[in-house]
Computed example of a mutant assay.
Amino acid sequence: MELKENIIKKYKNYMLLEKSLSPNSIDAYLTDLDKLSIFLRNENLTAENVTLDHLQQFIAQLYDIGINARSVARIISGIKSFYNFLVLDGYMQNDPTELLETPKIGLKLPTVLSLEEIENLFSVIDHSTKEGQRNRAILEVLYSCGLRVSELVYLKFSDLFFDEGFIKVEGKGSKQRLVPISHTAINEINKYLYFRNEMTVKKGSENVLFLSNRGTAISRIMIFYFIKQYAQMAGIKKEISPHTFRHSFATHLLEGGANIRAIQMMLGHEKITTTEIYTHMDREYLRQEIIEHHPRNNRK
């Protein structure tokens, strides 16, 4: 059995319908599977007769071409998912990935903006223009609600409950959650709506909150682009992205004394261990404060 088109199609449907993965996650899994397919073809192997030794050889080749441990771990996860599907669907009896070890990855703390950096970034936005006010509203929502950029671009008018102070968000696996929204973010959205009401909206996008100049939902790439632009204008040297605002949201809440379970719910994390990275960040922040400001550490 090779990685035939009909099997890949069934696997794609399995990820979509049974695992409820997002289109981006499915594309990532299939891209990783392409790497395995190339290896099998070069080694004259099929998916059915591959062994643990073969898979370890495949992983070694990934390292040889310079793929880092974090990416290798993701690829292994994708391969394990594929073979789990093959066993579940009766294509194979035994799973050769069962004993395949994932590389240990050191804790990498995400980039976080300070309150001052966030204010500096917001200050360079010209919100007298349609694009500027839209971008200001987008950044306020990212920061005040801790949304993923994929969640933000799909926000609809029907998801806004301003009187109650909440928005409804559809996260990974089509799971919905209610997230509090700040008065500042509500105010910026209302200012943006003044411009949006004058736009020509393409059919099918009438309920979409944040629009591009073409009258369709704004793309994630566009949000990445203007964040980079504003960061440069504000003199921020850190490498930031839309996700940086989500990290900053969680970190600032934790520093302010918020309960980690509450942060987990607002971020839409399925597991508390995912949220706990911010406790590491908080400890690292405290450590840096002590190193920089404690008199015992200021001696020459």
Rank of each mutant, 00 (worst) to 15 (best):
Glu2Gln: 13
Leu3Met: 15
Lys9Ala: 10
Tyr11Gln: 03
Lys12Gly: 00
Ser20Gly: 05
Leu21Val: 07
Ser22Cys: 08
Ser22Leu: 07
Asp27Ser: 15
Tyr29Glu: 02
Leu30Glu: 13
Leu36Met: 12
Ile38Gly: 00
Leu40Cys: 07
Asn44Asp: 12
Leu45Ala: 03
Leu45Met: 09
Thr46Cys: 01
Thr51Glu: 06
Thr51Gly: 02
Thr51Asn: 08
His54Asn: 15
Phe58Val: 04
Asp64Tyr: 08
Gly66Phe: 11
Ile67Thr: 10
Ser71His: 08
Ala73Pro: 03
Arg74Pro: 05
Arg74Cys: 08
Val87Thr: 09
Val87Tyr: 00
Pro96Ala: 07
Pro96Asp: 04
Glu101Cys: 03
Thr102Ile: 13
Pro103Val: 10
Gly106Cys: 02
Leu107Lys: 14
Leu109Ala: 10
Leu113Asn: 07
Leu113Pro: 01
Glu117Pro: 03
Ile118Arg: 02
Ile118Ala: 01
Phe122Trp: 05
Val124Met: 05
Val124Thr: 12
Ile125Thr: 07
Asp126Pro: 06
His127Asp: 13
Gly132Leu: 11
Gln133Phe: 05
Gln133Pro: 01
Arg134Ser: 01
Arg134Glu: 03
Asn135Glu: 14
Ile138Asn: 03
Val141Cys: 00
Tyr143His: 06
Cys145Gln: 05
Arg148Lys: 15
Ser150Asn: 13
Glu151Phe: 04
Leu152His: 03
Asp159Cys: 11
Phe162Arg: 04
Gly165Gln: 11
Gly165Arg: 09
Phe166Thr: 01
Glu170Ala: 01
Lys175Arg: 13
Leu178Met: 15
Val179Asp: 02
Ile186Arg: 07
Asn187Gly: 05
Asn187Ala: 11
Tyr194Lys: 14
Tyr194Ile: 14
Asn197Trp: 05
Glu198Val: 01
Lys203Asn: 12
Ser205Asn: 15
Ser205Leu: 05
Val208Gln: 02
Val208Ile: 15
Arg214Pro: 00
Thr216Tyr: 05
Ile221Gly: 04
Ile223His: 06
Phe226Ala: 03
Tyr230Ser: 08
Ala234Thr: 13
Lys238Pro: 05
Glu239Cys: 01
Glu239Pro: 00
His247Cys: 07
Phe249Arg: 00
Leu253Ile: 09
Ala258Asn: 04
Arg261Phe: 11
Ala262His: 10
Leu267Cys: 09
His269Met: 11
Glu270Tyr: 12
Thr275Met: 10
His280Met: 07
Met281Ile: 15
Arg283His: 14
Tyr285Met: 13
Leu286Ser: 11
Gln288Lys: 14
Ile291Tyr: 13
Lys300Val: 07
